[in-house]
């Protein structure tokens, strides 16, 4: 066998005679190119900022003609939404209440389950079983909203109508149950992060004082992780308010504020469903279309607010985890 040569072969670009120090020219080129490169990268990264600004700009611009003619006050306080009447009335109050109504109802279902599940995942399950349980949450998050809506209309609605004798199966209860399922993955993962980020010290201190798991969780861990849990709830709320397909398909789309307020078996209508359902019938240039954009602005502002709140609590949670 032929012995292989062991000489190191260098690429053609490697010039062995090159001095280690750069010439001033090379230095300048390097300096400029690194700064220009940085600027280009920055501009590309700024697309996100641009996108947010454009979204705000275009949605608001489109709603301005309507808001100028009809007035913000009437838009926000009138209960009547009659876009196709001879004298159209665009009162978004019912829609805003509807959105909040289903979202809050959804949270009532989702928050207890979500926190319990987060505790279970972070503190009770062994690492191995946890790797089996987590994909369940991930799959729940991955199922597209239209599939949930499909389930709500074709499976849940007929079942509820049969089982509970509701006049219609597409109602606030149906929508909020499905929204709860959709908000759960968000709530669970954020809450679990917050709970498990606390570290062992708090728990061990509590256990060593003789507290049971329940006491440790309820009196020590959850209070300590409250910022993260609040952030989880707010993010879940964001998910529920912004969700379109499910509420459009499952809420029944009746323009009314539920009366009595606790009766979930009534149909309601949300902002997102109104935009989705009526945009196709609102011709360009008509007040109806601008009104829908105005509804979009309200929706956007609501989510911005929730976003700021969640960021605040998330940063607090981060600090709390850093301290412990």
């Amino acid at each position: 066998m032929e012995s292989r040569s062991l000489t190191l072969t260098l690429g053609p670009s490697a010039d062995r005679r090159r001095p280690l120090a750069l010439t001033p020219g090379e230095d300048l080129v390097g300096f400029i190119s690194s700064h220009v490169g940085r600027a280009v990268l920055f501009l590309i990264t700024a697309t996100s900022v641009l996108a947010v600004l454009l979204i705000l700009l275009f949605v608001i611009l489109r709603s301005v003609p309507f808001l100028r003619d009809f007035g913000v006050g009437e838009f926000l306080t009138s209960r009547l939404w009659r876009p196709t009447a001879d004298e159209p009335v665009f009162g978004a109050l019912t829609l805003i209440v509807g959105s909040l109504y289903v979202s809050i109802a959804a949270l009532l279902f989702a928050v207890p389950v979500g926190i319990l599940a987060a505790v279970f995942l972070s503190d009770i399950l062994s690492w191995k079983i946890r790797n089996v349980a987590k994909p369940v949450v991930e799959i729940l998050a991955a199922i597209p909203s239209v599939a949930y809506g499909f389930f709500a209309v074709l499976v849940l609605a007929p079942w509820m109508q049969r089982r509970f004798g509701f006049s219609t199966g597409t109602n606030a209860l149906n929508a909020s149950i499905i929204l709860a399922v959709m908000a759960l993955p968000t709530i669970i993962s954020v809450a679990e992060d917050a709970i498990s980020a606390l570290g062992r010290e708090l728990r061990e201190a509590s256990y060593s004082l003789g507290a049971t798991r329940l006491e440790t969780m309820v009196k020590v861990v959850i209070p300590a992780a409250h910022s993260g849990i609040i952030a989880a709830v707010v993010l879940g709320m964001m998910r529920a308010i912004g969700e379109t397909m499910v509420v459009w398909m499952a809420s029944g789309n009746a323009t009314q504020i539920p009366h009595p307020w606790w009766d979930l078996s009534q149909s309601i209508r949300t902002m997102t469903a109104t935009i989705a359902g009526e945009m196709g019938e609102a011709p360009e240039g008509m007040p109806h279309r601008s009104a829908l954009f105005a509804v979009g602005v309200v929706l956007l502002l609501m989510t911005f607010m929730l976003n700021i709140v969640s960021e605040y609590f998330l940063s607090r949670a981060k600090k709390a985890a850093g301290k412990s």
Partner: peptide, 27 residues
């Protein structure tokens, strides 16, 4: 600002993206 924009973008409701797409890209 960059981070806030990215987080905000992630929180914008999907239907508002629909409005934006219609108003900005299409029209």
């Amino acid at each position: 600002i960059l981070r806030m924009s990215i987080n905000t973008l992630a929180g914008v409701p999907s239907i508002v993206f629909g409005l934006f797409g219609l108003a900005f890209f299409v029209l």
